[in-house]
C-alpha cells in the first residue's frame, strides 16, 4: 500500500472538490474493493476521500414509483430492503448472488458500480495489463483466460466486469445519479460502464466507466417496473458460493395472457460491462414462452461471442444459462440464491 493523504469528506461538494483537484484521488466507501486493490498495489491513490459519513445512505420511493438507492446503502441493506424486495426482487436476488455476507455488509451501491475486474493479470502488478498500466499489453490474451470476456472485448483487453448487482441494475434499466464539478447529472445504466473500446474514447481499457474527472456516484434510481414475478438471477460459477460468475443472467419478462410483452436480459461475467442486446430482446416480444424461442434469443444475443481459449466453454454455458433463466422467469420460479439446484 502506498502512502496517501486521508480526507474525510464533509459533503458531496467537498468530495468532488478533492477529486477534481487530485486526479489520482480515490473515493473510499465500503472499501471492499479499493482497500483490496491498494494492498495488491494495483491502486496507488495519492488521496483517499472517505465518503462513508455523507448522507447517501437512504432508500426512498419517488413520486413516479421509482426507487432511489443512495450510493452508501450497503449491498445487504439494499438486498433485504422491503421496498427493493417488492419493487425489484431481481435486484435483491442479484445482490445476494454476489460475494459473501460480510462483504455485502460493507460494500456499497456506489462502490459496486465502481468495482474493478478480477482479471488475474490486472491483479498482479508484475504482469502486463493495459487496464492497470496502459500500454503494457494484455497478459490474458493468449494466457490464462478462463474467466474472461466472450463479448465486446478489444484487441487490448478481455477483462470482465465482476459485479452481480450491476447485471441486475442493467436489466432493470436503472439510472445512475452522479455529482461533479459541473453539478448533477443522470447516466443511463447502459451508458455508465463502457466496453474497453468505444467510438468516443477509443481503445481505453483503463477507463471502466464514463464518469468525468471529479464526478462521484451519489445514487441509483430503479424505475418502477413489472418484473414482480417473472424474473430471475441465475449465476453459474466454479464453486457454489463466494465465487465470481463464469456466466450470470438477469432476466425479467412481462407476460400478458401468456404472451411476452416486454423482455429484459442482462448477462454478467461475459463482457467488460453487463451485456444487453435490446434488439435481440425485441424478438421475444409477442411470443409465447418456449424453449425454442429462448434458444433463438440466446443464439442471437451470443452471435458476436468469441472465445479466447480457456473460456471458449462460456459461449455454450451462456447459451444454456440464458435459456434456463428465461424459463425460470417465464414460469415465475426465480432462482433462490441459497438453493443450489437450479429451478
Amino acid at each position: 500500500m502506498n502512502r496517501f493523504s486521508y480526507v474525510k469528506a464533509t459533503s458531496v461538494d467537498h468530495a468532488v472538490d478533492v477529486l477534481t483537484a487530485d486526479p489520482a484521488a480515490k473515493v473510499l466507501a465500503g472499501g471492499t474493493n479499493l482497500v483490496d486493490l491498494m494492498k495488491y498495489d494495483v491502486e496507488r491513490p495519492t488521496t483517499v476521500v472517505d465518503i462513508k459519513r455523507l448522507p447517501l445512505g437512504d432508500i426512498e420511493a419517488l413520486d413516479d414509483g421509482a426507487l432511489r438507492i443512495g450510493a452508501l446503502v450497503s449491498n445487504a441493506d439494499a438486498a433485504y430492503d422491503r421496498q427493493v424486495e417488492e419493487n425489484c426482487p431481481l435486484l435483491a436476488s442479484a445482490i445476494l448472488a454476489g460475494a459473501s455476507p460480510q462483504l455485502r455488509n460493507a460494500a456499497t451501491t456506489g462502490g459496486n458500480l465502481m468495482q474493478r475486474t478480477r482479471c488475474y493479470y490486472f491483479y498482479d502488478p508484475s504482469a502486463p495489463c493495459n487496464k492497470r498500466d496502459p500500454g503494457t499489453g494484455c497478459g490474458a490474451i493468449g494466457g490464462v483466460n478462463r474467466i474472461h470476456a466472450i463479448l465486446g472485448a478489444s484487441a487490448s483487453c478481455i477483462a470482465t466486469h465482476p459485479s452481480d448487482m450491476c447485471v441486475g441494475l442493467a436489466a432493470l434499466d436503472a439510472v445512475v445519479e452522479v455529482s461533479g464539478p459541473q453539478g448533477k447529472r443522470d447516466i443511463a445504466f447502459e451508458d455508465f460502464h463502457r466496453l474497453p473500446k468505444d467510438d468516443e474514447r477509443g481503445d481505453r481499457p483503463d477507463l471502466d466507466n464514463t464518469l468525468q474527472l471529479g464526478e462521484i456516484v451519489t445514487g441509483v434510481r430503479v424505475p418502477r417496473q413489472a418484473f414482480g414475478q417473472n424474473y430471475t438471477y441465475l449465476k453459474l460459477r466454479d464453486r457454489l458460493s463466494y465465487a465470481f460468475a463464469l456466466v450470470s443472467v438477469a432476466a425479467g419478462l412481462t407476460l400478458e395472457n401468456g404472451v411476452i410483452t416486454s423482455a429484459s436480459v442482462a448477462l454478467g461475467g461475459v463482457a467488460h460491462k453487463p451485456w444487453r442486446d435490446k434488439r435481440a430482446e425485441d424478438m421475444l416480444k409477442g411470443q409465447t414462452p418456449s424453449r425454442e424461442i429462448f434458444t433463438a434469443f440466446a443464439e442471437r444475443i451470443l452471435s458476436p461471442a468469441v472465445g479466447q481459449g480457456d473460456n471458449d466453454f462460456k459461449i455454450s454455458l451462456a447459451r444454456r444459462a440464458i435459456v434456463r433463466a428465461l424459463a425460470q422467469a417465464a414460469s415465475g420460479t426465480p432462482q433462490r440464491q441459497s438453493q443450489k439446484s437450479y429451478a
Binding site: 488475474y120 498482479d124 474467466i147 464453486r239 458460493s241 463466494y242
Partner: peptide
C-alpha cells in the same frame, strides 16, 4: 501461464477451495 511460467491464481478468490455451500 506457461508462456511466462507464472502461477496466475495465487489467491483464495481465484484458487477455489470448498466453501460452506
Amino acid at each position: 501461464d506457461h508462456r511466462s511460467g507464472r502461477l496466475m491464481n495465487h489467491n483464495l478468490a481465484e484458487y477455489h477451495v470448498p466453501a460452506h455451500a
